[in-house]
Amino acid sequence: MFTRISHVRTADAVVEQVEALILRGILRPGDRLPAERDLVTQVDVSRPILREALKTLEDRGLLVSRPGGGTYVADLIGSVFSEPLVALVARHPAAIEDYLEFRSDVEALAAGRAAERATAADRALLSRIVEAMAAALETDDHATDARLDVEFHQAIGEAAHNMILLHTLRACYRLLETGVYFSQQRLFGHPGARVALLEQHRAILERILARDAVGARQAAVAHIDFVRSALAEAARDSARDAVSSLRLDRRLAGLPTPRRSRTRQDHRPARSSDPGA
């Protein structure tokens, strides 16, 4: 990942290399940098120069150091909105429609760009993620499926090779991971949804591999249309279940308690103790 600093071995050159790795999405928030003794060898600079570069990156908010725990890429995305606004949105689920509309537009753009620009490495990564999705479906691993869903769309953003689009998508999926707009588990729990979602991801992948930008955009829009429809149906089902449960509780409370049915022995006449009877 890191390369030797040639010619001018200065802290600025190290800073520029690390910033480029972060900006291009190669280093992600939470990624740990190699230990200092390894990193000085990889970039071929002295320890004082490396330490100066890391200090600069920390001052810029790009890296964070944990005492005794190493140096990590900072959480550059954070919350897209202020906490009060996020809480406000969470109290008004109608915002989900705007969220899905935004995702439809931006994911279509990303898929089209990925079809045009994806490298062999990008295509290999996307294919591997879809294979892992299929394995998670077979083992009924919902948690892994949800994680891979986000990973797949992030990888498409990376394959689009547009740095602004990449970080916009990461911010978008941060909201998805927090469950502000909707629960992935509710979506995956909808009958047939996981199978359908896998097929849609495969369709997007196939269009990207075929370098079909128009087809990739259409497949991405169809995917979000399905998500919108499945979530609406899941919400209706949930509302119906809630009403039915309330109705059942109310009805049962007004019904008499069923009597215990008599057994065959209960129906047999009692034997007389008189031998002459």
Score class of each variant (00 low, 15 high):
155 A>K: 02
173 Y>W: 11
133 M>Q: 10
185 Q>W: 13
189 G>I: 12
179 G>Q: 09
187 L>G: 02
146 A>G: 13
147 R>Y: 09
176 L>D: 06
201 H>Q: 06
202 R>S: 03
144 T>F: 11
144 T>V: 13
184 Q>K: 10
153 H>N: 06
156 I>M: 03
202 R>Q: 02
132 A>V: 13
201 H>F: 09
177 E>M: 11
174 R>V: 08
205 L>F: 01
154 Q>D: 14
164 I>G: 11
164 I>N: 10
178 T>R: 05
189 G>F: 13
143 A>I: 12
142 H>R: 12
159 A>M: 07
197 L>T: 01
143 A>K: 04
144 T>I: 13
162 N>M: 15
168 T>L: 15
210 A>R: 00
155 A>Y: 03
194 R>F: 12
176 L>M: 12
138 E>G: 07
188 F>R: 02
185 Q>R: 12
198 L>F: 07
187 L>C: 02
139 T>K: 06
182 F>C: 03
168 T>A: 15
153 H>V: 10
209 L>A: 02
170 R>M: 11
174 R>Y: 09
152 F>C: 04
162 N>W: 14
186 R>A: 14
178 T>H: 08
155 A>N: 02
195 V>K: 04
165 L>W: 05
206 E>I: 00
181 Y>I: 14
142 H>D: 15
162 N>K: 13
177 E>T: 05
197 L>K: 00
132 A>S: 12
151 E>Q: 09
191 P>D: 11
189 G>Y: 10
143 A>L: 15
179 G>D: 12
168 T>V: 15
203 A>H: 00
190 H>T: 05
152 F>H: 01
150 V>G: 01
143 A>Q: 07
147 R>P: 05
157 G>F: 14
154 Q>K: 09
202 R>Y: 03
143 A>H: 03
159 A>R: 00
192 G>L: 14
150 V>N: 02
174 R>G: 02
159 A>I: 06
179 G>T: 10
198 L>V: 04
143 A>T: 04
157 G>N: 08
138 E>D: 13
